[in-house]
Design a protein around this nucleic acid. Sequence first.
DNA 1: TATGTTGACCTCACAGTGAGTACGACCGGC
DNA 2: GCCGGTCGTACTCACTGTGAGGTCAACATA
Lengths: 269, 269
Amino acid sequence: MSAHPPASEQDWLAAYDPRAFAPVAVTVDVVALTLRAGRLAVLLVQRAEPPFQGHWALPGGFLRAGRENLAHAAARELAEETGLQGTDATAALDRVHLEQLGTFGDPDRDPRMHVVSVAHLAFAPDLPAPTAGTDAAAAAWHPVDTLDLPATGDDGRTPLAFDHAAILGHGLDRARAKLEYRPLATAFLGPTFTIPELRAVYEAVWGEPLHPGNFHRKVLSVPGFVEPTGTTTDRGGTRGGPRARHYRAGPAHLLHPPLLRPGREQRNP
Amino acid sequence: MSAHPPASEQDWLAAYDPRAFAPVAVTVDVVALTLRAGRLAVLLVQRAEPPFQGHWALPGGFLRAGRENLAHAAARELAEETGLQGTDATAALDRVHLEQLGTFGDPDRDPRMHVVSVAHLAFAPDLPAPTAGTDAAAAAWHPVDTLDLPATGDDGRTPLAFDHAAILGHGLDRARAKLEYRPLATAFLGPTFTIPELRAVYEAVWGEPLHPGNFHRKVLSVPGFVEPTGTTTDRGGTRGGPRARHYRAGPAHLLHPPLLRPGREQRNP
DNA sequence: TATGTTGACCTCACAGTGAGTACGACCGGC
DNA sequence: GCCGGTCGTACTCACTGTGAGGTCAACATA
């Protein structure tokens, strides 16, 4: 068969079994975000093999053809590369929110061949430190503010492998936007939490302080966002203050009205 | 090589050239929306070959491995299956907004093999009637309100091929939501338009009438959405009324404040 | 006990909205 | 040429949600 059939032969291509001519691989990558010590962090693995040996990369791997769908592949890769595969770890992973982020398929994004990567976005509560998988030299949570995106690599640090810096940038944008109208911030917290803890999630993801009083009012005014448990914290904050009430996530899937980020009206690109 | 390597061998898989073991195909499908006679319509092609022979399907085809990225493949498929490949047609296609919608990769969504489809969404001005490609029996714009999604096929009509009904549903949801905060409605219109024409786009996509006065006020209050050309229509509407002013699309990429759909606050799933 | 911090709640001014009204240009029909 | 109806544009009004700030009492630390 011809290596470069002319443009008019797309019907010819479609009539044949693509496994005979289409050297395309499909991988799944995961932008897994969590809160570590009050800072937004992303899970990265250090590549043990070429290409990009020694570089940090998003966890991911090849889709198992014919045996799993994309969401399952993403969940499997996340479990494998965090080392969270025990019974209690499975319970922790059940609390993870996982959604598709986008698909990246430039022909030269992988030097080996044409690899189409379906990126996913995961919001996780504070997971234990990851253990490196067999094809990785290390795995760790990295605070995103020290990655200094999108200029990663310009100041001497090793840049992320492949186009993973761009994928991570998309994931952060999506996470910041999605917190406005979906109750996903609770996915970063335990089963119960306080309003100030919820506010800390928003401040960490958005990277700016929020007005405590207004945030409190808005969260409680959204129907189904949080519901009180009736209990409070055992003691006040480390620097004083009254005890905070406990809440749990409510049944809402959509925040109405949304919690909008401050100061996003004056810039129009 | 083993047809079913055990779960612990993912590193083994990653170390090998996937073209030797991964029977996965990547296709690109397009949900192309336009306005025909004031109604929202989607481009469908009738399949000439099995599987789903005779069924209507979204236009799409295989990604040309190593020679194009996903956006290029989507634009190529759209051009091919609309028969718009001439010079003036290229100009018409330049006005089309194209974006990635999502990727669908269930192992059994195609009976032949595991096919991962990267769906795209296109907003087009009133394009000419399409001509069927070589692998299609027919191609036509179908008003979406007669498709009766997602129950397509229940009332005797032939259902869409593969999981294309679900993909189309996602596309319509995305289009309706995106019109709120992106100036994409102008992509359905010509280079200049009137405010009532723009309102007709929103009413057709959202499927409900809008308050003319409030819509007018809101469109003009969004900086960079539209800018006046200084001219007006040659005459009033067919049933009377004054001449409407002409506008063209402004430089804004984001609508601030957004144009929100009415009546979306009382239902929380 | 003294002092500073903080969660919960409140007030006030203002921007944006839905609903309705007003006006006059314009159409078709008589 | 007149007339009734249509419709683009503009305005008013009441209401909602917001940002900014204040108040108070519970609480920690010294």
